[in-house]
Design a protein around this nucleic acid. Structure first.
Length: 600
RNA sequence: GCCGAUGUAGCACAGCGGUAGUGCAGCCGAUUCGUAAUCGGCAGGUCAGGGGUUCAAAUCCCCUCAUCGGCUCCA
């Protein structure tokens, strides 16, 4: 891929946020005006600016079509060309109520009633009443541009039509939302569209299919992942690394079942709080069983299977535990949102005094794990006690400051989300940033005061009395499936050597070199490399093309010259041709690249 | 689950009332070639599944399933 000198993200970062916001907000009004002109039966609702453009929700009997969007766009350009003034007016509540009633706009009336008593009520006109021929207004708090002509007619586009509930509540009417994108100028619009194209190019669903990594089978049901040989090999590599660093980090690996007696979920409380996300139960010999949506109760049972001394704490149980959650049919998305997935779960049982140290350990492990996959920038959030919660105030206080203390010791900047914690304890979330600047929440660390109580967990303290341990839930990848999807998109399928399912493709200039290359293949396999000789007999250029399309990191090519000198001509995806290298030297280089988790 | 769209060979797509077509991939043969596509041949589809309208359905209608874009949800 040829990189242009100016990155799209640079162009977009130059944009003025305040001006963008006004442009987008005014765009949404211009669109609503255009829509009501073309479709007088459409009722207006709300239309804010978004991160890359704007939308407006309409209530209309008939569905908008993609052709309608073209017409609306045309009408919008007319409004922009007319350069109508945007006029702000403060208005009395009752006066505007009368006007809205006259226009028969029920949603606007509802919005009006939701405005606080003491607030100043404003509306924005497009066009000057009594002067311009076309005038339209909307109840709105602004801010906006001064005139519609300030919008660059080549810097916006209408994107799509989608359903959206009135006020985001699924019990309300379904409205039709028209999305648009808008920027300051055509250059920014182009840059933005490039970024979207780039994201599409990296789509893990596309790459997963092309590279034969995984599939989701209609016959089996949605949201259930099939790992194909190449994907499964990558998964094994990831799992092996995960297990290795967890064992080094003082964790013990456990393995637990996929179903269990429903009683367990009643005890844990999941059956009450989480029922909507659980699969239906099944009857087994007059007992009710449940497919597991969580691993925690299982780890708790292992903990409870014996008496623990304070000397043993902290106890850390880790498991790549596959859980099943019922997701509504419209919500599944590739590997990112599925019904069966594998949490890289662990539960730490410790004393109150050990929380800070344990959290720090988790932060360190998270950094070690994530940075190995090239994720070096994190956005960290600390979520504190919500309105509804369990546990004593004192323990909340203690745990929250333990989390803060750990973050400070780690030296990480973080944002505090007041009241954003779970009802059972405070938590830390870590978001990673991928190669094209998108953020993904993966790691989560949660302190739990609830489950130890419900399961009556204990340890024997120094004074011989039974005490209750604290539990810390933590996942670093979050979901292995989802993390894999993120990896595919981050690398755009160009995986580093240690992850690549096939590391080397051997290619002969003609069939003459087959005996030699067969020998080389054996040697490389013996060295532990994932290598494959192309025996198709196709022309060399075709074999190279095939290997490129499969995104195999290293192509090792031999003609008669290489056979003579016991070497290979090397072509890599990352750095192009590297020239001729002796076989043994190449193997060493490859092994080194794999070991350091880098490239050749 | 809701709104809208889509579902044709392994993949990308054409056909949109008269009982399926192109390219790539696959297989067979010829070619033995120096860094992203050699040539020729063959094979491959209950047009997502089910029901209906029609003399006739991939094409029109209904239901189901899945996918896509959103909404909602993600203690």
């Amino acid at each position: 891929m040829v990189q242009s000198s100016v990155k799209p993200s640079d162009i977009l970062n130059q944009a003025n946020p305040d001006r963008l916001h006004r442009i987008r907000h005014t765009c949404s009004h211009v669109m609503a005006m255009a829509v009501q002109k073309l479709f007088p039966d459409a009722k207006v609702t709300i239309g804010p600016a978004t991160d890359n453009g704007f939308f407006y929700d309409f209530d209309r009997q008939e569905a908008f079509t993609p052709q309608d969007l073209k017409k609306i766009e045309k009408e919008m350009k007319k409004i922009i060309k007319a350069n109508l003034p945007v006029i702000r007016e403060e208005i009395d509540r009752e006066a505007i109520r009368t006007e809205i009633t006259k226009l028969n706009e029920p949603y606007k009336l509802e919005l009006l009633d939701a405005i606080p008593e003491d607030a100043v009520i404003t509306r924005y006109f497009l066009g000057e009443p009594g002067k311009d021929k076309n005038v339209w207004w909307d109840l709105c708090s602004g801010p906006h541009l001064e005139r519609t002509g300030e919008i660059d007619p080549d810097s916006f586009e209408l994107e799509s039509i989608a359903g959206a509930y009135w006020r985001g509540n699924e019990n309300n009417a379904m409205l039709q939302r028209i999305y648009g994108i808008a920027w300051e100028n055509a250059e920014q619009l182009e840059a933005y569209k490039h970024q979207i194209e780039e994201a599409k190019r990296r789509d893990h669903r596309r790459i997963g299919k092309d590279l034969q990594l995984f599939s989701i089978q209609e016959e089996a049901g949605g949201g259930l992942v099939f790992w194909h040989p190449r994907g499964a090999l990558m998964r094994k590599t990831i799992e092996d690394f995960w297990k290795e660093i967890h064992l080094q980090g003082g964790y013990e690996l456990v393995t637990t079942p996929h179903i269990a007696n429903l009683e367990l979920w009643k005890t844990s409380g999941h059956n009450d709080f989480y029922r909507d996300s659980m699969f239906d139960t099944m009857e087994v010999e007059e007992q009710t069983y449940q497919l597991k949506p969580m691993n925690c109760p299982f780890h708790i049972l292992i903990y409870k299977d014996g008496l623990h001394s304070y000397r043993e704490l902290p106890i850390r149980y880790a498991e790549l535990g596959t859980v099943y959650r019922y997701e509504r049919s419209g919500t599944m998305h590739g590997l990112m949102r599925v019904r069966g997935f594998t949490q890289d779960d662990a539960h730490i049982f410790c004393t109150e005094d050990q929380i800070s140290q344990e959290i720090l350990g988790v932060l360190n492990l998270a950094e070690q794990l994530l940075s190995t996959f090239g994720f070096a920038n994190y956005e960290v959030n600390l979520s504190t006690r919500p309105d509804k919660y369990v546990g004593e105030d004192a323990i909340w206080e203690k745990a929250t400051s333990a989390l803060q203390n750990a973050l400070d010791r780690k030296g990480w900047h973080y944002k505090v989300d007041e009241g954003g914690g779970a009802f059972y304890g405070p938590k830390i979330d870590i978001k990673i940033e991928d190669a094209i600047g998108r953020k993904w929440q993966c790691s989560t660390i949660q302190v739990d005061f609830n489950l130890p109580d419900r399961f009556d967990l204990e340890y024997v303290a120094e004074d011989g009395l039974r005490k209750r341990p604290i539990m810390i839930h933590r996942a670093l990848f979050g979901s292995l499936e989802r993390f894999f999807g993120i990896l595919v998109e981050n690398y755009a399928g160009d995986f580093p050597l240690w992850l690549a399912p096939l590391q080397v493709r051997l290619i002969g200039v003609s069939d003459e070199q087959m005996p030699y290359l067969t020998e080389v293949e054996q040697k490389m396999k013996a060295a532990g490399l994932r290598v494959q000789l192309d025996r198709s007999g196709e022309r060399m250029a075709k074999q190279i093309r095939k290997a490129e399309l499969e995104k195999i990191p290293v192509m090792a090519i031999a003609g008669n010259k290489e056979v003579e000198s016991h070497s290979l001509s090397i072509r890599t995806r990352q750095q192009g041709e590297l020239g001729v290298i002796p076989v043994s030297e190449l193997i060493d280089k490859l092994l080194h690249g794999i070991q350091t988790k880098g490239w050749l």
